Computed example of a mutant assay.
Amino acid sequence: MTEYDNEPIPGLPGILPPGETIVWQGSPDWRSLARTAFHTRLVAVYFAGLSLMAALFAVRHGAYAGLELTVSLGLVGLGLLHVLAWGSARTTIYTLTNRRIVFRIGMAVPKCINLPLGMIASVDFAGRANGTGDLPLTLIGAPKLGYVALWPHARPLKIARPAPMMRSVPQAATVAALVARTCLAANPNGRIAPIEHAQAQTPRTAAPAFEEAHPA
């Protein structure tokens, strides 16, 4: 049994109330998450530079222990970051319903963060060449969300006013269109522009605890 086995619906903390339906569910692509949230490429470049310096020192002085240690640390560090990215993606489910967006996140302490569509002022989109992308959500008011509790599902550098972000979503352009259209349908007077050509994606697994964001 895992901590997710008691979920009545994968990715949600309870049974949906009458009239609420799931529009889309998805999880981050772990390889893209490793590169963008855990910065594996930057870490690889850093250790490559250290290894080059260690290699030059080893050739000059005939001492290769430092080079072996540097390379080993780099490989272990990159391996751990990839494992964390895989674990984070595996335990994350983003759920869009006709009334809210739910983030099921957390490896050590699973939780669900509930964002009613009426709280969402805008949906941004940052796509990548491989089809994945990030969907930062701008919320109305001052929701009580902590940056550390949200990370890595938080917009980078928005620490004082954390903004939830759906990270490394596959088929991101399609999902962004679907999210924008659903938000607009729920809040016709909002500022979210409708985008066409959206389609749903296959759901994945799910989580327990529940946290609801309220405007201050």
Rank of each mutant, 00 (worst) to 15 (best):
residue 88 S to H: 08
residue 125 F to V: 09
residue 75 L to P: 11
residue 146 G to N: 04
residue 151 W to V: 10
residue 61 H to K: 08
residue 152 P to K: 05
residue 119 M to P: 01
residue 137 L to Y: 00
residue 131 G to Q: 06
residue 99 R to F: 10
residue 130 N to T: 08
residue 103 F to H: 00
residue 100 R to I: 03
residue 71 V to F: 13
residue 103 F to P: 00
residue 129 A to M: 05
residue 99 R to C: 08
residue 45 V to G: 11
residue 131 G to S: 07
residue 122 S to N: 15
residue 137 L to W: 01
residue 39 H to I: 00
residue 150 L to R: 08
residue 71 V to G: 04
residue 130 N to G: 06
residue 58 A to L: 12
residue 57 F to H: 03
residue 54 A to L: 09
residue 153 H to D: 10
residue 159 I to F: 11
residue 45 V to R: 13
residue 44 A to V: 09
residue 58 A to Q: 00
residue 110 P to V: 11
residue 72 S to V: 15
residue 147 Y to W: 14
residue 92 T to H: 02
residue 42 L to E: 15
residue 118 G to R: 11
residue 83 V to L: 14
residue 135 L to H: 04
residue 74 G to W: 13
residue 57 F to K: 00
residue 62 G to C: 13
residue 155 R to F: 12
residue 47 F to E: 12
residue 103 F to Q: 05
residue 160 A to Q: 06
residue 92 T to S: 09
residue 53 M to P: 01
residue 151 W to S: 07
residue 37 A to P: 01
residue 48 A to S: 00
residue 127 G to H: 12
residue 129 A to D: 08
residue 70 T to C: 14
residue 55 A to H: 03
residue 41 R to M: 09
residue 70 T to V: 15
residue 75 L to R: 10
residue 115 L to W: 00
residue 37 A to L: 01
residue 120 I to G: 01
residue 41 R to H: 14
residue 152 P to Y: 04
residue 120 I to R: 01
residue 122 S to C: 06
residue 76 V to Q: 02
residue 81 L to G: 07
residue 77 G to N: 12
residue 128 R to Q: 11
residue 137 L to P: 00
residue 70 T to W: 08
residue 93 I to R: 15
residue 78 L to G: 09
residue 128 R to A: 11
residue 141 G to S: 05
residue 140 I to H: 12
residue 62 G to N: 10
residue 77 G to M: 13
residue 141 G to Q: 07
residue 139 L to N: 08
residue 77 G to F: 14
residue 152 P to G: 01
residue 46 Y to K: 05
